[in-house]
């Protein structure tokens, strides 16, 4: 086989470990995109990842970089500690919506407000995956979960939080966008955004976060393919894709 024939191969940023994610879970896509970006930027050697608590608790098994494992929701604080003493390293957190938008809301908001020069990959799949599909702050109104069995009742269970819109109001945030992982085109756009987020950090241009609409086939009770449709038909209207904050300096970056 000629090497020149190769169109696509598993990224070097990945270890050989198969992921523990359910079949069709787009966590895997998000992981792969991060690994590809780290490889393309040539920063694997100086990257330190911060894993969350939730389905991606074992993220540290999959990336070929140093990794630390944070308590639930505290990844942005831990990343702050790492980055402040190792400013020349690339530091990123990878967090789900239970981790980031529920228990870790304080840590993410303040890391963003301080303009910590870290990158946050935020997976929004509208539920707590690891513990078996409970309601998350991002669960859609009326959506059934194992702790909102009749559908999320906004009268008693409140409304979803739009994290990107909220974070984009903070001056410390340099780059804040929402993308989706439900089809090839959007996956490519998501990768560009992840690349941009890491470029922002590499240039010291402040806090960068990419929210990714993601699937949870097992807990949604759908096939992987139908889960992708659910993202397009139900999540995208509630969580519109877009660039919520791209600072002027970042607009100049060409990749």
């Amino acid at each position: 086989m000629l090497k020149e024939n190769l169109v696509y191969d598993r990224p070097e940023g990945f270890t050989d470990t198969p992921t523990h994610y359910c079949p069709g879970c787009t966590h895997g896509v998000a992981h792969r995109l991060v690994a590809e970006v780290l490889e393309e930027m040539g920063v694997i050697d100086r990257t330190i990842g911060v894993a969350p608590v939730g389905c991606s608790v074992f993220a540290y098994n999959y990336f070929d970089t140093d990794f630390v494992e944070a308590p639930h929701g505290r990844a942005p604080a831990m990343a702050t500690g790492v980055k402040r003493v190792m400013p020349d390293r690339i530091v990123f957190t990878y967090q789900g919506d239970g981790d980031l938008a529920s228990i870790g809301m304080g840590e993410i908001v303040h890391a963003a407000a301080r303009g910590e020069n870290i990158t946050v990959i935020f997976i929004n799949n509208a539920n707590f995956g690891m513990t078996g599909g409970q309601m998350a702050p991002t669960t859609l109104p009326g959506m059934k979960t194992s702790s909102s069995v009749n559908g999320r009742d906004v009268e008693t269970q409140g409304y979803p939080i739009r994290v990107s819109e909220m974070l984009s109001t903070l001056d410390g945030v340099g780059y804040c966008v929402r993308r989706s992982l439900h089809d090839p085109k959007n996956i490519r756009l998501a990768k560009k955004a992840i690349r941009m987020a890491f470029e922002v950090q590499a240039r010291g241009l402040g806090f960068s976060v990419v929210e990714l609409l993601s699937t949870c086939p097992t807990n949604w009770g759908m096939t992987p393919v139908n889960s992708l449709k659910f993202v397009e038909e139900h999540m995208m209207p509630a969580y519109p894709l877009g660039d919520f904050k791209v600072s002027d300096a970042i607009k100049q970056i060409k990749i």
Binding site: D9, P11, Y21, T26, H27, G28, V29, R32, D183, I187
Partner: peptide, 10 residues
Amino acid sequence: VVCPDAAITV
């Protein structure tokens, strides 16, 4: 591109 497990080499 869509494979969640980086299982496909092209």
